[in-house]
Nucleic acid binder design. Sequence first.
DNA 1: CTTGACTCTAAAGTCCACTCCAGGGTTTAC
DNA 2: GTAAACCCTGGAGTGGACTTTAGAGTCAAG
Lengths: 140, 140
Amino acid sequence: MLTIGKLAAAGEISPDALRYYEAEGLLAPTTRTASGYRLYGEDALRRVRFIQHAQACGFTLAEIRELLQLRQTDKACCNDVRQRAIEKRLQLAAKIRSMQSMSAALDRLIAECADGSQSVDDCPIMAALEQIDGGAEPAR
Amino acid sequence: MLTIGKLAAAGEISPDALRYYEAEGLLAPTTRTASGYRLYGEDALRRVRFIQHAQACGFTLAEIRELLQLRQTDKACCNDVRQRAIEKRLQLAAKIRSMQSMSAALDRLIAECADGSQSVDDCPIMAALEQIDGGAEPAR
DNA sequence: CTTGACTCTAAAGTCCACTCCAGGGTTTAC
DNA sequence: GTAAACCCTGGAGTGGACTTTAGAGTCAAG
């Protein structure tokens, strides 16, 4: 059994974050000592890694909690998990496109101002940012 | 001279947002009526568009305030603006890469589970998320 | 036996860009 | 003249994932 500090060290996370996960319903200690210290079993580390990897895939903690709850649901099958992964991939694609169009807009601004020795008042970048047609599509 | 409501309508933004910009030092009304109503000049609309376009390029309001302050600084030249644009493009590129690796991680998980009829306990996605090597690099 | 490292709780703070609210005053249209 | 539509201020709320703080109890080593 691991105390919160040991689990935190093993998972490279702060004890505070672990307590936060508990409050969010993602990871409860197996038991407590008589004095109230949290004690975690071996699977806690696997759970911590699960959370970290899912976060690295773009899932929020609320979504991760849902993924974990699928395990409790008898009728849920792997397809439910797969569907959530596919949806998240779509969300990521949309965000990536949005940021790519921001980057492309910056590309155009930077190119417009290849020689940057003018004063800020004459800067083509500043001017372009005031134009109606300049810039990227709004981010969502 | 425009009241806050007129400017808001022209800029397709809420009056609350305009008051927020004022509090953040991005856009002050030209003057006020005797009763305290904000009155904006014509350049206010150009300023609103500047803010919106810069946001669409990924700049935060704090960064936009800095861009605007460059105009007040005598010694600042267009290169300063250009440098900020280049730096922002770098930041965007980093975020895009991070999200692309998230998406690629999801690709692998989804492929691993082409047939999703198993129970969640045997789901290859759930299993992979618990492995040390699974997942993408952490987002920053 | 004491010092220092660890743990506990509950609540508040952080960042960002707003939105929403209450409780007023003002202006415009009919 | 009155109702609707507008405007004002200050402050609280939102979401997300924590961190920080304060005050207090607990445990291991020397």
